[in-house]
Amino acid sequence: MKPRRRQNVASYVALIPAFVIVVCAYLGTMLWTVQISFTDSKLLPSMNFIGIRQYERLFTTSRWIISLENMVIFGIGLILVCLVLGFLMAAALDQKIRFENTFRTIFLYPYAMSFIVTGLAWQWILNPTLGVQQYVRNLGWTDFRFDWIIQNDRAIYVVIIAGVWQASGLVMALMLAGLRGIDQELWKAARVDGIPAWRVYLNIIVPMLRPTIITSVVLLSLAVVRVYDLVIALTGGGPGISSEVPAKFILDYLFGRSNIGLATAASSVLLVIVLVIITPWLYYEYFRPERAKGGK
């Protein structure tokens, strides 16, 4: 009994620094941010409380509303397409094909690039007077149109395309690792029973990949919430303000427009959204007592 308790005490003591850092650096700054959002802080933080006026302004600003809508569209689009593409690529690579290493590198390569590079490259590819559209027109198809990047209601889908190009390789790598972890006996058994391969994938493999899928979704959602540099390089939030995103709104008001109050109000809203959506779901996935160990 005694040595064990001593060991526990020691481990708690060892955890204190990490605990202090978590409390001060994460929770402390979070609370401070929320507090500032109720003040009229401009360039410098002040403690002059004005109630929910910043939030009222926030939700009557069309740019913020557009930003939130875009985050939802971008989030759903990016996560769905990445999961499907990533899984298909992983399944294809898992067929013991030749040059697997080469393909894996090619698929994963975009992930090694910064969003800025991705954004600039796609900006040129999709620019109607320089890129694909002009190229196809020069080939002879003169009324070919692919100018989403300059259309108000399509620009955000261009951001999804570039995002998918970059991130689906990562999902592929995760999925491939998951597929490699599946027992080969399972395939043999399925073959004996004469089950077609697509059914095995859909009804057996995908459910077994559940932890991998969750990991991918969490990683992708993080990318969705903080998407900033991709939009800057690709569309600059345009045309007009039609592809603005929340992170860009916050950074613009925090620095360029020196309105800390409004920027912290916006980031508090973002924080609440993340907590409301992600927390119950993560709890459900990881902490449900009966399935806690059952996933694998």
Partner: peptide, 19 residues
């Protein structure tokens, strides 16, 4: 005018231009 006013107006101008 303050940076907040001027730059919030640039959003309005950009929205108008693109639409």
């Amino acid at each position: 005018a303050s940076a907040d006013v001027v730059q919030s107006l640039t959003d309005v101008v950009a929205e108008y231009w693109a639409n």
